[in-house]
Amino acid sequence: MAKNKSPEGRGPSQRMLRVGEVIRRGLSEVLSRGEIHDAELNRMMITVGEVRVSADLRIATCYVLPLGGDGKDDLLKMLSKNKHELRMVLTQKLKLKHSPELRFQLDHTYDQMEATRAMLAQEDVARDIAAPDHEEAPE
């Protein structure tokens, strides 16, 4: 009998990835259409970068970022305040058997990409990347 839980040290299962993506798309749609009864939240443009679901599918951690990066702290407060309504709307929209608890965190992926670009743009790193590798593997 296969386990739904991914073993320690391995990545998420296909089921976890699939459910996370379904929730991400649904949450993005709900937020972009302004289906929540919070005028402040509906005015914000929000990017849902990723949703990670726990192995038992009971907790969904949503990585979000306001468009332009302004108002990050306000965004987390507003989403946390409205998480019960978001959960209800998502459950109805996606017809999920069990509605996961929604948790929100800031998405730092774009910051990490910028740091990587900056590092690769450094002169000494660019020189090392462009240099041919003259060492041959020992036989």
Rank of each mutant, 00 (worst) to 15 (best):
A118N: 11
M113L: 15
V30E: 00
L79G: 00
I59W: 06
D133L: 15
A137M: 12
P7W: 05
V89T: 05
K81R: 11
C62Q: 03
Y63T: 05
A39C: 08
A115L: 12
K81V: 00
N82R: 02
V22A: 15
R10Q: 15
P12I: 05
R43D: 13
K77N: 07
R25K: 15
T91C: 06
R103Q: 11
L65W: 09
R10H: 12
V22D: 14
Q105H: 13
M119Q: 15
I129M: 09
T109W: 08
R52V: 09
P66E: 01
R33S: 08
V53F: 03
A121G: 15
L94W: 03
R15A: 09
K5A: 12
S80Y: 01
L17H: 07
H134L: 15
H98N: 12
A126N: 09
K5D: 13
L41Y: 00
M119K: 14
R127Y: 12
L27A: 06
E139H: 11
R127Q: 13
S28L: 07
K72L: 04
H108F: 15
L86F: 04
A137V: 15
S6M: 07
D111C: 05
S6D: 08
P66Q: 00
V51W: 03
L65P: 01
M119Y: 14
R127F: 11
L90H: 04
R24K: 14
H98I: 13
M113E: 13
A137E: 13
E101P: 01
L86I: 06
G69L: 04
G26E: 06
I59R: 09
E123M: 06
G20P: 03
E21M: 07
V48D: 01
E136L: 11
R15N: 09
R24W: 07
I36G: 00
L17T: 07
E139I: 07
P138W: 03
K72F: 05
A55E: 05
L120Y: 14
N82M: 02
H108D: 14
L67W: 09
E136T: 10
L31D: 02
A60M: 04
E35Y: 08
A126L: 11
E35T: 05
S80P: 00
I36E: 00
T47D: 10
L31A: 04
M45V: 09
V22I: 13
V19S: 02
Q105D: 13
